[in-house]
Simulated assay, not measured.
Amino acid sequence: MVRSILVAAAFAVLAALPARAEVGEDGLHKEAWFSITFRDIAEDIAQAKSENKRLVLSIEQRGCIYCQAMHEKLLSDPEVRDYIKANFMVVQYNMFGDEEVTDTDGESLTEKTAVRKWGYLFTPTLVFLPEDPPTDLSVDKAAVAVMPGAFGKWTFLNMFRWVREKGYETDEPFQIYHARIIQELRAAGRLGAE
C-alpha cells in the first residue's frame, strides 16, 4: 500500500515538471506543432493567412540556453502554447543553418545568410510578419514586430496577442499594451504584485 502511494506520488511529481523539449539533429529544440515548410516566406505568409493565422519566424541556434528556456518554460505552458498554436504558424530558422530560404523580396539565400542580411544577432528572435507578403521588402523591413531574446511568460504571450490584435496599427505601443494587460491580470487575481 505504502509502495503504491509512493509510486503514485513520484509519477505526480514527474508529471508536474516542465516538459523537456526534443532536440533535433541540428541541435535546435523542436516543437511537434512548428511548421515544416520550403522556407519560401511569401508562400508561408499566404499559407498562414489561409489558416486564419499569422506567420512568425523563430530564429534559434544550437546550444542557446535562452532558446531552451523558451521551449521548456514558455512553449510548454498550456496557455502560451495553445494560444500560439491557434493563432500563429511558426517556422523555425537556424541562425547558422544552410537550408535554402526565399526572402519576401524574392532573394534566395541560406538561413545563415538570410539572418545576417536581416541583421538579427540574438537567439531566440521571433519575427512577426504581415498578413500579406510584400514583394519589394526583405523580412527585416516587412516585419510588424520583432522580439529579440528571452522574456517572461506575460511579455512573451502579450507580444503574440498584440500582433494578433494588430496593435502595431494603433496608437498603443506594445509597452503600454503590456502594462495594461498586466494591470487587468492583477485586478482579476491572476497575477501577484511581482
Score class of each variant (00 low, 15 high):
R3A: 12
R3K: 08
S4I: 03
A8G: 12
A15P: 00
L17F: 13
R20V: 11
E22I: 06
E22W: 03
E22F: 03
D26P: 13
H29T: 12
F34N: 12
S35A: 15
R39H: 14
D40A: 06
D44Y: 10
Q47G: 05
V56G: 08
G63T: 11
G63R: 12
I65H: 14
Q68L: 11
Q68G: 12
A69N: 07
S76A: 13
S76D: 13
P78Y: 04
E79N: 13
R81E: 14
I84A: 07
F88V: 12
F88D: 06
E99M: 10
E100S: 10
T104C: 03
E111Q: 15
E111A: 11
K112Y: 03
T113C: 02
A114V: 05
A114P: 11
A114E: 06
W118A: 10
W118E: 14
F122D: 11
T125Q: 08
F128M: 11
P130V: 09
P130W: 05
P133F: 09
T135Y: 01
T135A: 14
K141P: 00
K141Y: 01
A142M: 02
A143W: 02
M147R: 05
A150W: 13
F151S: 07
W154Y: 15
F156Q: 02
L157G: 08
M159P: 01
F160E: 03
F160P: 05
R161P: 00
W162P: 08
V163Q: 03
Y168M: 04
P173T: 10
I176F: 10
R180G: 04
R180K: 14
R186C: 01
A187M: 01
A188V: 07
R190Y: 03
